[in-house]
Design a protein around this nucleic acid. Structure first.
Lengths: 106, 106
DNA sequence: TTTGGATACATCATATATCTATGTATCTTT
DNA sequence: AAAGATACATAGATATATGATGTATCCAAA
């Protein structure tokens, strides 16, 4: 589990990347996927995820489709056109950043 | 210039690493060094640096030596024993983090 | 059959770190 | 003499992750 400050600014790009790979995902599924992918190192919390998803929707980077599973609601998220382009930019920026950090620290 | 949120959690480890490499540095010098090392991609501001240095001192990770350059004050920072050990831990954690992010995004 | 754990959404208060702006003052170069 | 660089510092605004809490359903095991 990393110090929480490290995660700042990376949650949104992680979500966008996962959506790009799966074409549609719902919130709870995203939290499970992140935990699985990072072997529990990033425990994306629901208190972090849902506000992040709402922000992405607010910015028109994702759109939603709500379906019913029995009596339960499930909200699927998909990337918009704008979301795809912002995702690419953010990935490039984040990777540039991580490489800069690695260069300084190595 | 990266989105400011990305930098969160990395400023302290960058400072600790620079101090490890130079055995003593003063604040303004650190800002110049970071800008130089990152080719202006990380513009460490004085409003970010000085509070960060004060926090590191509060945690006993660095100690200070104040000297006078003419009539001007210059405050040198050096790593403490504790600072050296925390620096190593933080570097390991940060590099682990950046590699995790790279793996997800690539 | 009931209880616990997993699924699934959400919001609020809190903590914390960074940025911008501002302030003071000295030194150096033009 | 003025402008730009050096050198410290703090205050307020901002953003976002976390922990806590809430509601409710579904399913498997006791």
């Amino acid at each position: 589990m990393y110090s929480k400050e490290l995660l700042k600014g990376t949650i949104s790009v992680i979500i966008l990347k996962l959506l790009a790979e799966h074409d549609r995902m719902y919130g709870y599924q995203i939290t499970r996927k992140v935990i699985e992918l990072t072997e529990n190192k990033i425990q994306l919390r629901e208190g972090s995820l849902y506000p992040a998803l709402h922000r992405l929707k607010e910015e028109n980077l994702v759109e939603t489709e709500t379906i019913n599973i029995g009596k339960r609601v499930r909200r699927y998220y998909t990337l918009t056109e704008k979301g795809i382009s912002v995702m690419k930019e953010k990935i490039a920026e984040t990777l540039d950043f991580t490489r800069t950090i690695e260069r300084i620290l190595s």
